[in-house]
Amino acid sequence: MTVYLVRRLLQALLVVFAMSVIVFVGVYAIGDPVEILISPDADQIERERAVQSLGLDLPLWHQYLVFLGNALQGDLGRSFVFNEPALKLILQRMPATLELAFGAMFISIVVGLPLGLYAGLRPNSPVSKTIMAGSILGFSLPTFWVGLMLIMVFAVQLGWLPSTGRGETATFLGVQWSFLTLNGLSHMAMPAINLALFKISLVIRLTRAGVRETMLMDYVKFARAKGLSPARVTFVHVFKNILIPVVTVVGLELGSTIAFSVVTESVFAWPGMGKLIIDSINVLDRPVIVAYLMIIVLMFITINLIVDLTYSLLDPRVRLEGKGA
């Protein structure tokens, strides 16, 4: 276990370094933020002063070395627009995105696992066929269109749910959370469901495929031959063995949900990291863009490590020491 963790941490450092170079060069090679931040009526002296104050007069490699040195000290740059540390801005918005992402994944697991399990156990029933047809819609419908339809139906026509904003929040561990209040939950419902639709379809199809494959295994046949009840066969021998691929996909999808919740946050005016990055891209606020992308990289690396460690808990046959072979 120790050798595996050390190896993974070294790999993570190399990935973070490589991604920092790619992200920094990619973002800083596109556009000129001075053209957006400075008034068109400004003279050349004011423009040069702005370029020097932002550190844009240095060569690209020098800018990267300055960024890398500051990043090692926990400083990912200062926002051109807000004149605040980029990391601070992102951390202020992170709780809103995290609770939305975790809410969406919770919905996808609670809804997708039972439906996928039923569809796998009874593949030819009309209900199973309906479930699988519905999962195709979840894959096919665009997120922004579903969000607009949810607002039109449940907010405009029925008036059941608020359409935008985060609602009332409550403080827990020094952080503001919406899910701790009823008003916050009502604001969170539609964007979380909108984010969860694709994930529900994914979990349904993955669970169904796992069940269909596992039901043909010898150990399941032996369990039935021993006279075990269908419930015990399903939840002890079948369900446990399909969790490994489900955990893998759900873990990776959690990272992608956090990273790509931009559309949902924009549609529902949810004040999270996604909305911040869209606003930053519009004004070429480079430090915020780079800081956001680096935090997303760290999140993906951490989630992948947690998923790998979970393997050994779900199936002792998985040996972490042998993964590098």
Rank of each mutant, 00 (worst) to 15 (best):
M215R: 06
A259I: 01
S256N: 11
T181L: 00
A86R: 15
G227F: 09
F67S: 06
A71W: 15
T97G: 12
V111T: 05
E99D: 10
T302P: 05
I109Y: 08
A119T: 15
A29L: 07
W160A: 13
L54C: 15
V111K: 04
V318A: 02
M188T: 01
F222Y: 03
N83F: 14
A189S: 07
Y64E: 13
G116M: 06
E213K: 11
M94C: 09
Q157R: 03
T248W: 02
F82M: 08
S128P: 08
G184F: 01
F198R: 12
P316V: 08
L293D: 12
L195V: 11
F198M: 05
R47E: 07
L89D: 04
V211R: 00
H237E: 07
E99L: 10
M299Y: 05
T181K: 00
G174P: 05
P40D: 07
P126D: 01
G116S: 11
V318I: 12
G322P: 00
G134W: 04
V262H: 04
L100R: 07
E321A: 02
Y28R: 07
M190G: 07
V250H: 12
T2G: 14
F222H: 09
R47A: 09
L182E: 07
A71D: 13
V153R: 03
N282Q: 14
T181R: 00
L180H: 04
S201E: 00
V220F: 01
W160S: 15
D308I: 12
L182K: 04
S261L: 07
A12G: 08
Q73Y: 10
P85K: 02
W270A: 03
G324M: 12
K226H: 13
D315W: 02
G69V: 08
S163F: 12
L202E: 02
S280E: 02
F172Y: 13
A29S: 13
W177N: 11
L148R: 11
G147I: 03
P126W: 06
V250I: 11
V250D: 00
V288L: 04
I306S: 01
Q176F: 02
T143E: 13
V153S: 13
F222K: 07
A325W: 10
L13I: 15
V111L: 00
L68T: 01
F179G: 00
P59T: 09
G322R: 08
R49W: 06
G159Q: 03
G138P: 10
L158G: 12
V250G: 01
S256C: 12
R208Y: 05
G227C: 01
